[in-house]
């Protein structure tokens, strides 16, 4: 049975469509020359450090092939780490090492690999195997994120993250993304991860969707999503909102992870955030974006912007 909603009903519910997102928001509020700031993870990280924004700690960068051979020496005192391509997309090319065993490295799956496999991975990153354009890339070596225990019951492998849409510095909608067996430990919604809409003012769960269908419990752990509770919600909003001051991108998706020891940090920024967040929230983005368009000024500082959202009745 082909099931459609009428365009007028969809308009009434304030859903933001792809064409509208591209023309009225991304191309209007995101200056193209700023895109590299978020498309290149190294640039994002350096910028974040400059602004004192918390991100997973960068241990070192491998830029040239000759540095690959010094890898063992540099990793001498580091037992767990993650290697990422700076220009990778969709979580491709990320190698996670959670410990050592003699000369070997233990991957997150538990498999032990030798040094030569690690160096080959880095060589591939440098050659651009994981960058979509196929251009040369650099490899980032970061400390491993240790996921906060609050989400342990709701995630199958992988680290859950919180996606917040920030429009002209105002956080407008949020969603928690939980990996599942079907998504292969990845937190991408279209790969089968669970999206839990979060109330932008309180961080409380609204409802959850997987593959576009509403669900009540996590398919692998069977825990009900109702019990999800995120502490210090306002801190998260401030963190997300500060990314606007850092990048100047008006329509931004901010991905935040909660680390057991270091608290909330920015994992990634996205200049073309997807539309599924609306389904997870059972709410359209459009009314909120229009409200912000009315009130937004360049002068409003971080605190004021977040306070505005927290105090705004229509959200």
């Amino acid at each position: 049975m082909i099931d459609f909603i009428s365009p007028f009903a969809l308009r009434r519910s304030g859903i933001l469509g792809m064409n509208s997102r591209n023309i009225e928001f991304i191309s209007r509020y995101n200056d193209r020359k700023l895109f590299p700031l978020v498309d290149n993870k190294l640039q994002t990280k350096l910028l974040a450090q400059e602004y004192g924004i918390n991100t997973p700690e960068l241990l070192f960068v491998v830029r040239y092939q000759r540095d690959v051979y010094k890898l063992l020496e540099k990793l001498k005192d580091i037992s767990s780490f993650a290697i990422k391509p700076a220009c990778g997309s969709g979580g491709k090319g990320i190698l996670v090492i959670k410990g050592r065993e003699g000369d070997g490295f233990i991957k997150s799956s538990g498999v032990v690999i030798g040094l030569e496999e690690v160096t080959r991975h880095v060589t591939n990153i440098l050659a651009g195997l994981y960058s979509l354009s196929g251009d040369q890339d650099v490899a980032l070596v970061e400390t491993l994120i240790e996921a906060d225990a609050v989400f342990d019951d709701y995630s199958y492998q992988g680290v859950p993250d919180i996606r917040i849409i920030v429009f002209q510095g105002y956080p407008v909608m949020a969603m928690l993304r939980l990996s599942t067996k079907a998504s292969d430990g990845k937190a991408n919604l279209h790969q089968g991860a669970v999206g839990v809409g979060l109330d932008i003012k309180t961080g409380k769960p609204i409802n959850a969707v997987m593959n576009g269908v509403k669900i009540l419990t996590h398919p692998d752990t069977n825990h009900s999503f109702d019990t999800i509770k995120i502490d210090n919600w306002k801190e998260l909003l401030l963190l997300a909102s500060s990314c606007y001051d850092m990048t100047n991108l008006g329509y931004l998706g901010v991905d935040i992870v909660l680390d057991k020891n270091k608290g909330a940090m920015i994992l990634e920024l996205n200049a073309r955030p997807g539309l599924s967040i609306q389904v997870a929230n059972s709410k359209g983005l459009l009314p909120r974006l229009r409200e912000i368009e009315k009130v937004a000024t360049k002068r409003a500082n971080l605190q004021k912007r977040v306070d505005f959202v927290l105090g705004f009745e229509n959200f």
Partner: peptide, 21 residues
């Protein structure tokens, strides 16, 4: 190129909103 309305398949993607409105 300047059409900002919904795409036909979006009417299906967001069909859940029928019950919400």
């Amino acid at each position: 190129g300047r059409y900002t309305g919904y795409r036909l398949l979006e009417l299906r993607r967001f069909r859940e909103f029928k019950t919400i409105v």
